[in-house]
């Protein structure tokens, strides 16, 4: 014969178990909703499926040369996404085992921006009265006469925002840093001819050098950087 207080304890435990089960289920649903809200499903790159032949200017630390080599790679058609994908493929080449210009694995570029040349800007016109809609009047800042002038109209300045993790892990040395920059510039020149000048940022900020040597503050003119005949 089961005593009355034992039955009460038993049913209390059953209720607690069911309550705990319901609470667990409810918390699980909440966590799943929270994670699904945080997930960014915004499409970044246009979908692309077909591969195309592109030229990559690949550096070699052995003899300090840049060699143009052909690769079959699928690239997006949008120009900034294309530039970013090109540079990430370049970084992937250098991260492969046995690379002659070994760099640490990981993405090289955060963003690539294109700015039409010559670069102009707008400054706040302190002397003018605010407009009716409350906007502060601005005046056009003409191109800097001391800056590198565009060689042909319609060309663009590419601002390459490198990842801090890539720059911080880059090997230090005059030649190895110079080869990395030349490889980037040469690859852009071979595949995106509308780029005339390149400026580098690191995590959105100007930085003096890549790893203590190569200048990242200057404006680079895009050109063919290959020093040996093309190979395959």
């Amino acid at each position: 014969m089961i005593q009355r207080h034992q039955r009460i304890v038993f049913w209390c435990l059953v209720v607690c178990i069911l309550g705990m089960g319901l609470l667990l289920f409810w918390e699980r649903q909440r966590a799943r909703d929270r994670v699904s809200q945080l997930a960014d499903n915004t499409p970044i790159d246009a979908p692309y499926t077909t591969t195309e032949s592109i030229t990559m200017d690949l550096a070699s630390d052995d003899d300090g040369t840049i060699t143009a080599q052909q690769r079959q790679i699928a690239l997006p058609s949008e120009v900034t996404a294309r530039a970013r994908a090109l540079l990430d493929h370049l970084a992937a080449e250098y991260a492969q085992p046995g690379s002659v210009h070994p760099l640490s694995p990981g993405a090289m570029v955060d963003d690539v921006y294109f700015v039409p040349l010559p670069v102009v800007g707008y400054s706040i016109d302190a002397g003018a009265k605010p407009s009716a809609d409350g906007n502060t009047p601005t005046s056009l800042v003409p191109p800097d006469p001391d800056a590198l002038q565009p060689q042909s109209p319609g060309d663009e300045l590419a601002v390459i925002n490198l990842r801090g993790s890539f720059v911080n892990a880059h090997p230090s040395g005059v030649e190895v840093e110079q080869l990395t920059l030349q490889s980037i510039i040469g690859t852009l020149h071979a595949n995106l001819p509308q780029i005339e000048q390149v400026r580098f940022l690191v995590d959105g900020q100007p930085r003096e050098t890549l790893a203590g040597h190569a200048d990242l503050l200057r404006l680079y003119m895009v050109r063919d950087t290959t020093t040996t005949a093309a190979g395959h």
Binding site: G173, E175, H213, A214, D215, R218
Partner: peptide
């Protein structure tokens, strides 16, 4: 090579590595 700060020097400048 573009080695900082050689582009800012107003003298005959050579990087000796």
């Amino acid at each position: 090579a573009a080695v900082r700060p050689v582009d800012s020097l107003t003298c005959p400048a050579v990087v000796v590595e």
